[in-house]
Simulated scan of single mutants.
Amino acid sequence: MIKISTVQLWVHDQEAALEFYTRKLGMEVRADVTMAEMGGFRWLAVGPVGQPDIAISLMAIPGAPVMDPETADQVRDLMAKGFGGTVFLTTDDIQTTYKELLGRGVEFVEEPVEQPYGMDTSFRDPSGNQIRLAQLG
């Protein structure tokens, strides 16, 4: 059986992303390893408490030879527009979660609204990645 274990989001600043995903969203660190033999490459991953088999890798935008400067700029531009990636989160009580996250400083793009599949809202991380939060049902 194939399972999803890790998804990747590009981030401008791994420390700011770590702060946002752990302190504001309440996720936990899955991995934080810097590899000197790979030029100081840092593998940073977080995940939701209670879902130890799922992680989000918060990947710094690499330079050459992995990514040329023009491509890196394109990735940054897409992130700034909210199109660098999307994470979909669910909650059992969207109104309570919405208020809790607002209290932690999360800036929402919209208030929760009724959709055909349940209630839905969105916010962005410090790099501009879109996060959708839904109460399904």
Rank of each mutant, 00 (worst) to 15 (best):
D32Q: 13
D32C: 08
V33Y: 13
T34I: 06
M35L: 14
A36H: 08
A36D: 11
A36G: 08
E37Q: 10
G39P: 08
G40I: 07
A45C: 09
V46D: 12
V46W: 04
V46C: 04
V46S: 06
V46K: 05
G47D: 05
P48W: 05
P48A: 15
P48G: 13
G50I: 01
D53W: 10
S57M: 15
L58F: 04
M59L: 12
A60S: 13
G63H: 06
A64N: 05
P65C: 01
M67P: 11
D68V: 08
E70G: 00
T71I: 03
D73R: 13
D73M: 07
D73N: 08
V75P: 00
M79L: 11
A80Q: 00
K81D: 04
K81G: 02
K81M: 02
K81E: 00
G82A: 01
G84P: 00
G84F: 05
G85T: 04
G85E: 02
T86K: 12
T86C: 04
V87Y: 03
F88T: 14
F88W: 06
L89R: 01
L89I: 01
T90W: 01
T91C: 10
T91S: 08
D92H: 15
D92S: 14
D92M: 09
D93A: 09
T96C: 08
T96Y: 11
Y98G: 07
L101H: 07
G103E: 07
G103F: 00
R104H: 11
V106G: 04
V106Q: 08
V106F: 06
V106R: 06
E107D: 09
V109W: 05
V109K: 13
E111H: 10
E111W: 01
E114W: 02
Q115I: 03
P116S: 11
P116A: 10
G118W: 11
G118R: 05
G118N: 01
G118T: 07
M119K: 15
D120S: 13
T121A: 14
S122Y: 05
R124M: 04
R124C: 04
D125M: 02
P126T: 12
P126L: 03
S127R: 01
N129Q: 03
N129Y: 00
N129R: 08
Q130T: 12
Q130S: 11
Q130C: 12
L133D: 03
L133N: 13
L136K: 15
